[in-house]
Simulated assay, not measured.
Amino acid sequence: MRNINFNHLRYFWAVAHEGSLTRAAEQMNLSQSTLSVQIQKLEHQMGHPLFERVGKKLVLTEAGQIALDYADTVFKAGDELLSTLQGRPMANRQVLRVGALTTLSRNFQLEFLRPLVGRADVELIVRSGNTRDLLAQLEAHEVDVVLSNSAVPQDARTLLRNHLLNEQPVSLVGRPRSGSKFRFPEDLRAEPLLLPSLDSDIRVAFDRILERAGIRPSILAEVDDMAMLRLLARESEGVTLVPPIVVRDELEAGILVEYCRIPEVTERFYAIVKKRRFPSQLLIDLLDIAGAKFRTL
Rank of each mutant, 00 (worst) to 15 (best):
R23A: 15
R88Q: 11
R119C: 08
I209K: 08
P217D: 07
E237F: 13
E267L: 11
G47A: 07
A271F: 08
V170I: 05
V146E: 04
P89L: 02
R106A: 15
A136N: 11
G214W: 05
V223T: 10
R216T: 15
V122Q: 13
V247R: 12
I125L: 13
T84K: 13
G174V: 04
P192W: 07
A233E: 04
E43T: 05
V170N: 06
L81P: 01
Q109I: 14
V98A: 04
F108Y: 09
R216S: 13
N7E: 14
A271R: 05
S280W: 05
G129H: 05
L287Q: 12
Q154N: 09
F12M: 01
L135V: 03
D225R: 11
A156K: 11
F182D: 05
I125P: 00
T34L: 03
R161D: 04
N162K: 06
A91I: 05
K181S: 13
E111C: 04
L81Y: 11
D187G: 02
E43L: 01
A67C: 14
L35Y: 03
F294K: 10
D187K: 05
E186H: 10
L231Y: 10
V204I: 09
A91F: 01
F12R: 00
Y11L: 10
L138D: 01
S236W: 13
L104A: 11
I209C: 00
S31F: 00
E26Y: 00
L58I: 05
K41H: 10
E111N: 12
P115L: 12
E250H: 13
I4S: 03
R276C: 12
R230Q: 13
E252M: 15
L282T: 10
P243I: 02
H44A: 14
K293F: 08
V170P: 06
E142D: 12
D187Y: 06
D249P: 07
M228R: 15
V223P: 02
A156L: 15
E142R: 14
Q27D: 03
G174F: 05
P217M: 09
L283T: 11
A67F: 01
L104S: 09
L231Q: 14
D121F: 09
S36Y: 09
L188W: 03
V126G: 01
R132P: 00
E123D: 14
A16C: 01
H44Q: 15
T61A: 06
L58Y: 07
L256Y: 10
